[in-house]
């Protein structure tokens, strides 16, 4: 195995350099093991669970299916970069308050997916919410509290208008 890839990624607004990496490394692996950003989780390695959802040029994608070295010209945002300060976002707050978090392994991916959804579609229908997170498998909650958290976020955004 030759570990001779050197490149830079733009992650959460910062330029981060990757050294001595193997060509086959996914963005998920590089974020977690090389760039000190373990918030993005891996659970299937094939885009079937959504735990590794990140934003790439504004689109929600599975980091496990992005060859890291091909992402050099993209802006990547991970769960760590969803908010710049230590405060929780309204989505994160709702997830905690509505009981949408149990084991929490799917949670970072869901948080990114929900931010992405509400950014594109601030007033999604119930079906649109479900479809938008249908790529994020949660094994603990059965999704009921997750829906509640998304709806609570939408309500609070509407109330504060």
């Amino acid at each position: 195995m030759s570990a001779n890839e050197f490149y830079s990624l733009n992650v959460n607004g910062e330029t981060m350099s990757v050294q001595d990496s193997w060509v086959g490394e996914s963005l998920l692996y590089v974020l977690r093991e090389r760039l000190g950003l373990p918030g993005t989780k891996g659970a299937c390695e094939q885009g079937e669970c959504g735990s590794c959802t990140v934003l790439m040029d504004g689109e929600a994608v599975c980091a496990c299916l992005v060859m890291a070295a091909t992402a050099v010209n993209s802006e990547i945002v991970t769960v760590e970069g969803i908010t710049t300060d230590s405060e929780l976002t309204d989505v994160q707050q709702s997830f905690v308050e509505e009981g949408a978090v149990q084991c929490g392994f799917c949670t970072p991916g869901l948080i990114v997916a929900v931010h992405h959804l509400l950014g594109k579609n601030p007033q999604p229908s119930e079906f649109e919410i479900k479809e938008a997170i249908s790529g994020n498998i949660c094994r603990c909650t059965g999704y009921g509290r997750v829906f509640a958290a998304v709806e609570a976020t939408i309500r609070s955004r509407n109330d504060s208008k």
Partner: peptide, 20 residues
């Protein structure tokens, strides 16, 4: 309905799973 003490870390991705 007390809230999970690990909730904030879990939604921020800073909760440390074994694989982390």
């Amino acid at each position: 309905s007390a809230l999970r003490p690990d909730g904030a870390h879990k939604v921020q991705g800073s909760f440390e799973f074994t694989s982390d």
